[in-house]
């Protein structure tokens, strides 16, 4: 069993793919499935990755395309339905201890369009440059900027209406 040494370079990126998928989809099982699909695709096409180019961007691009395809196909893969009957497309966690602090930001994220959520997360969580986000999403950088602006302003509206709970929490 090979451990840290000799580990495939993709492995180091798995936690990041997971984090983004979890934030994007708001559902653990769906996110794990998307990451798994991404790994499978990346592995089968690894010969196409040019050494020296940004592996992270390449992986995120693959994952984005897989997700975009799934959305286009109606994303009716079994087992991936939200069991939440609230009608929200994005499940909102409200367990006992996270109701106060975690739900607002996730709730608000769920209300963004997918386009806006992608940009807000790639820039805000993955700390990607606007150009990297544009590469991953396959859109011009101007589109990234306008989606980022609309997404963040929508979040500002939503979270400001939430008693400012989030704003108080973060220094």
């Amino acid at each position: 069993m090979e451990k840290d040494t000799g580990q495939h370079p993709i492995v180091a990126h798995i936690p990041h793919l997971r984090r983004y998928a979890r934030a994007l989809l708001g559902d653990r099982a769906m996110a794990e499935d998307l990451v798994q699909d991404c790994l499978e695709r990346a592995w089968s096409r690894f010969h196409l990755w040019r050494d020296g180019s940004n592996l992270r961007t390449w992986l995120f691009t693959i994952m984005h395309n897989l997700h975009a395809n799934a959305v286009r196909d109606g994303s009716r893969r079994p087992g991936l339905v939200s069991l939440d009957d609230s009608g929200a497309a994005f499940p909102i966690r409200a367990t006992q201890e996270d109701r106060l602090d975690l739900a607002p930001v996730e709730d608000a994220l769920a209300r963004l369009s997918l386009d806006q959520r992608q940009v807000v997360l790639l820039v805000g969580i993955e700390d990607m440059s606007y150009q990297q986000a544009a590469d991953v999403l396959g859109v011009p950088i101007g589109t990234v900027m306008s989606r980022l602006h609309r997404g963040r302003e929508r979040l500002r509206d939503l979270l400001a209406g939430n008693g400012g709970a989030m704003l108080r929490r973060v220094k």
Binding site: R18, R19, V120, L121, L159, M166, L167, R169
Partner: peptide, 19 residues
């Protein structure tokens, strides 16, 4: 707000990195 949002997103989702 934009800055706090980024901090909050990290606070919420960074634990996934440690899984």
């Amino acid at each position: 707000f934009y800055r706090r949002l980024n901090v909050e997103l990290h606070r919420r989702f960074d634990p996934v990195l440690a899984e």
